[in-house]
């Protein structure tokens, strides 16, 4: 199966506002794909439909060949589809370490497991979490509350936490927004590292350099539907794309 994720003819309206209006695209397995478009184009709403935080009025979502259109969010995540958020969503009152450990696949989190002796397992999970933190140079922050991290560190932690689940695909909603240069390099490296592990990445981002540098394919949305797709080079030259961006700015 070439494509891991497909959304077909999706519609989603909020009152009279058609946030998603006939949106269709697919994402190739193992790729890093960009999803761009002017503010209000419907990118985040599309992510919400893909991850089940909202359901489309019509249209379908397929992941790994399964029709997941009406699946709850947690089931999609268990099948291997997870995401990060435009507005950071970490667990501020848990430690940085625990933020990652709760996400780790092997953790035994059932009620029936509370009397198990988990010493060894937990020690191993702590090791794993620390290793993950080490890849982004956050290991020295492991025992801080996540809420005490800086904005950029919280963004990193959120991506790392998604990776800790060992998903097949990660949707990143503006991972580079409000990030300084060094952190940007760390995030880029992390994303490339995740791709090297065989994961598929879909990125919403306004930072064009970031998109051009990472993505093999770019999908452009406007008014809730796809208006263009292609290689970064093609997209930059596409008159429709230029119009979508410039038209908005002029207005």
């Amino acid at each position: 199966m070439e494509n891991i994720l497909t959304i077909r003819a999706a519609h989603k309206a909020f009152g009279g506002l058609k946030a998603i209006d006939g949106c269709s695209f697919e994402v190739r397995r193992g790729s890093i794909t960009g999803l761009i478009g002017p503010n209000g184009a419907g990118k985040t709403t599309a992510f919400n439909l893909l991850t089940g935080l909202s359901t489309p009025d019509s249209g379908t979502v397929h992941f790994e060949g399964k029709d997941i259109t009406r699946w709850p969010t947690y089931k999609r995540a268990r099948l291997g589809l997870t995401r990060t958020f435009q507005m950071i969503r970490i667990f501020p009152e848990l430690t940085v370490l625990d933020n990652l450990k709760v996400a780790l696949k092997d953790n035994q989190q059932g009620l029936h497991q509370i009397f198990l002796n988990q010493k060894k397992l937990q020690a191993r999970l702590t090791e794993e979490a620390l290793e993950l933190l080490d890849t982004v140079n956050l290991a020295d922050k492991a025992h801080l509350f996540a809420g005490q991290l800086s904005y950029g560190q919280q963004k990193l932690l959120e991506i790392l936490r998604a990776a800790a689940m060992d998903p097949r695909m990660i949707l990143l909603d503006e991972p580079a927004a409000g990030i300084n240069r060094t952190a940007l390099k760390t995030i880029t490296d992390l994303i490339l590292h995740l791709q090297a592990q065989g994961k598929t990445i879909l990125i919403i981002e306004h930072d064009m350099n970031f998109i051009m540098q990472l993505c093999e394919k770019v999908i452009v949305m406007d008014f809730g539907r796809v208006i263009a797709e292609g290689t970064p080079g093609d997209i930059q030259k596409n008159p429709k794309v230029l119009e979508a961006y410039l038209g908005r700015t002029a207005a």
Binding site: A77, F91, L94, I114
Partner: peptide, 19 residues
């Protein structure tokens, strides 16, 4: 670990679902 998941729900339920 069960209790830890409860705390993630308190902190951010949407994030917990997404995991």
């Amino acid at each position: 670990p069960f209790g830890r998941v409860l705390e993630t729900i308190r902190d951010d339920e949407v994030a917990a679902m997404s995991l």
